[in-house]
Nucleic acid binder design. Structure first.
Lengths: 234, 234
DNA sequence: GGCTGTCTGTGCGCTACCGTACAGATATAA
DNA sequence: TTATATCTGTACGGTAGCGCACAGACAGCC
């Protein structure tokens, strides 16, 4: 939160025409997003739509057993709360702040007013929804076919793209929850990356040293999602 | 295909108001959907939107290595080609006919004309999209945490719900492709179900004998998706 | 300083699933 | 009938990841 927050830091808000943005601005509320904050739980009626500026939010699914897995990750490239305009009002996932920062939020009711004008906002939200679908689909196959080593690389890259610098405040325990694996599995994978000089870390602070190497060690899933997202939301 | 095909066999078409349906009817084309037919490949520009009556279509992701995994399954409860109205025109997945039958299709252009009236069709498609998102998310976590045995049960139930009778024309090889596992893994899981009297099968024809048992052996994922789908699309 | 809680590293047996190989069974074609 | 392709069953070694247990490292607090 070094720079003063600005709605335009969120790519979706920045992509709106001035006309739409100016209608929305009075309803935008800047909120602090501390690590671990839960925006909503599975089944909750959504009250707001969130546009992160420098924070990152994970859409996390928690099972009956308590085991969890990340479905999608949203930063300044997206919005949290698509279920609001989809018409469902709630989802089966939890939205959890994975990297602290800030976000702009709008009351669901106000947001729907703009959405229901069936103009730019509708088009933009539809395209974003497809990007979200792509990411979820890729997560599903990645969970099926790729090793923890590869998935950790993918996950680091996804987070990195949504941050200003190359540092992530994140313990291995939390990463394990996101990936839906054991903490020890993350420790081993991170150890390998460390030995190869790709990352450095200590007590919850990860520094990426060699992004190119990270990309080469990642599975195809990162690149596929990035390419498709860039295509849908230029 | 015993009964004469009728657009109303598709739940989404049946949910439309008469006004909308009558506008759409002249553009609906009944098509045969043979097993193995590919409606579109990853990256293809979608030409039609498909509303299955008694056929079942799998949205399948195929990776660089050739390995695959099913992302979602669509029958008379849904529609294939959401990317058309989302604005992307293409997706990263393949649409494959998993159970033969028929479907009604509409040219993308005609469909978008109705969609862009921003009436019932828009609302319905948005709600369906959320149901699709729910299914994909559940698939992702299921791939991470559940055994082949459980997933086979889930998969059989999903298929069963979209068929008229309790018979599936499906080889173990094909099921393995859908689940993204080895064919031998499916053979073993199916063998267990057979020994328990839950299913019977031979050479590509599976008969479900004890649906209740199947549900009890399945992971929670089936019920979660069904409950949420019923909520979104009553 | 010492105490305590959190984070990371490591080891070990276990299981599910994979890759591979091959054999038997059943349908279709010659 | 025989031949061939397809489908299913079984076996076996290899391995990635799990559950569990515990040890060391580092930070903050008293």
């Amino acid at each position: 939160m070094s720079a003063a927050p600005n709605p335009q830091q969120n790519h979706l808000l920045a992509a709106l025409t001035n006309e739409v943005l100016e209608r929305l601005l009075p309803h935008l509320e800047l909120v602090d997003m501390p690590l671990g904050m839960v925006l909503y739980e599975s089944g909750d009626t959504l009250r707001h739509v969130y546009f992160p500026t420098d924070s990152i939010v994970s859409l996390l699914y928690v099972m009956e057993s308590g085991a969890s897995a990340e479905i999608s990750v949203v930063g300044n490239d997206g919005v949290i709360g698509v279920a609001l305009f989809m018409g469902g009002e709630s989802t089966t996932s939890r939205a959890l702040v994975q990297s602290a920062g800030s976000a702009y939020r709008v009351l669901g009711k106000r947001f729907k007013e703009e959405f229901n004008r069936h103009g730019d906002m509708l088009q933009l939200m539809l395209r974003y929804s497809q990007a979200l679908i792509t990411q979820m689909a890729q997560t599903a196959v990645c969970n099926r076919h790729h090793s923890i080593d590869q998935q950790l690389c993918r996950w680091l890259l996804l987070s990195l793209d949504r941050l200003r610098d190359n540092k992530l405040a994140m313990t291995q325990e939390l990463i394990a929850n996101m990936l839906g694996v054991r903490r020890e599995g993350v420790t081993e994978a991170a150890g390998k990356l460390h030995r190869q000089g790709v990352i450095d870390y200590s007590r919850g602070l990860i520094t990426v040293l060699d992004r190119a190497k990270l990309e080469s060690l990642s599975c195809e899933c990162y690149a596929v999602v990035k390419r498709e997202t860039d295509r849908l939301l230029p």
